Amino acid sequence: MCGRFVITHPDAALARLFGARPANDLPDTPRYNVCPTQPVATIRSEGGTRLLAPMRWGFLPHWYKSETDGPLLINARAESVATKPAFRAACRERRCIVPASGFYEWTKDDEGRRLPWYIARPGGAPLAFAGIWQDWEREGRAHRTVAIVTTEAAEDMATLHHRCPVVLEPADWALWLGEAGHGAATLMRAPAPGTLAWYRVDPRVNSNRAEGPGLIEPLAA
């Protein structure tokens, strides 16, 4: 799964990388502890134009009567996203990309304490998470919301955690965004072994209020 992530790459750099037009209301960067329900930058395609714009992280199905009317849907499982009522229309019609510099996962020690790990590309290049989005509105409150698609982790990462975000490579972006015909389902697979690397980081990140570059510094042995 993916429950927290990091985005340090500037908006202008992301706009160039993805060939997208940036909105004026993107969240500030860098952010070292992006949490559910916060706004996140996303890329979607409208009429052949890519847009870099914010969405609320936490997918709200259209039948939710309030933001807390059901489970907080921050992730969508690749195995069921095309058939689950909450996600199936978005999977067909409203796919997007969530850029990230890295993300966190946790293991536990023998005493049950949560041990955080930072996961990123070995060279530091941005990650492109597969996402799906949904507009939601009730009683004057409106959100454009997003969930990150996850899948079973590849063999190397499965030693750390059994789930992983779907990471899209540049050659896959057009297909996922609906610009290159059908077949996006074939992209919902684990990153190839070696795509990601990880190391232990400070347990301060266990708090959703923690922030700052120290959160992604390797933990001293």
Rank of each mutant, 00 (worst) to 15 (best):
R44M: 08
I119D: 01
D135T: 12
V98I: 12
R21P: 03
A89Q: 12
R144F: 09
W57R: 06
E139A: 14
P126M: 09
K108E: 00
D69R: 13
P122A: 04
R44A: 02
I97Q: 05
A76M: 07
E93R: 15
R31H: 06
D135C: 14
A142Q: 12
G124N: 09
I132F: 08
S45T: 02
A89K: 15
E67Q: 11
Q134C: 08
G70M: 14
P116E: 04
W136I: 10
R77S: 03
Q38V: 08
Y64Q: 07
E111G: 14
H62Y: 10
L72N: 02
S45P: 02
F59W: 12
R50C: 01
D110P: 06
A41V: 15
Y32D: 01
V98N: 03
L115Q: 12
L73I: 14
K84L: 08
D28G: 13
A142W: 11
W106L: 04
D69S: 15
H143I: 08
R21W: 04
L72A: 07
R77L: 11
G70F: 14
G70H: 10
W133H: 12
R44S: 08
D69A: 15
T37W: 13
S80D: 13
N33L: 01
R92W: 09
R113D: 03
G70P: 09
A120R: 00
A100H: 02
W106D: 05
R56L: 12
T107W: 05
F129A: 06
W63E: 05
A76N: 01
G47N: 08
D28N: 09
H62L: 14
G58W: 02
Y104G: 01
W106C: 06
C35P: 06
S80E: 13
P99Y: 11
V34D: 00
G112W: 06
S80Y: 09
P54T: 14
K65D: 07
P122H: 01
E79F: 06
W133L: 11
Y118E: 02
G123I: 01
C91H: 11
D109W: 00
G124F: 04
I132C: 05
T68Q: 09
D28S: 09
T49S: 05
S101C: 01
R121V: 00
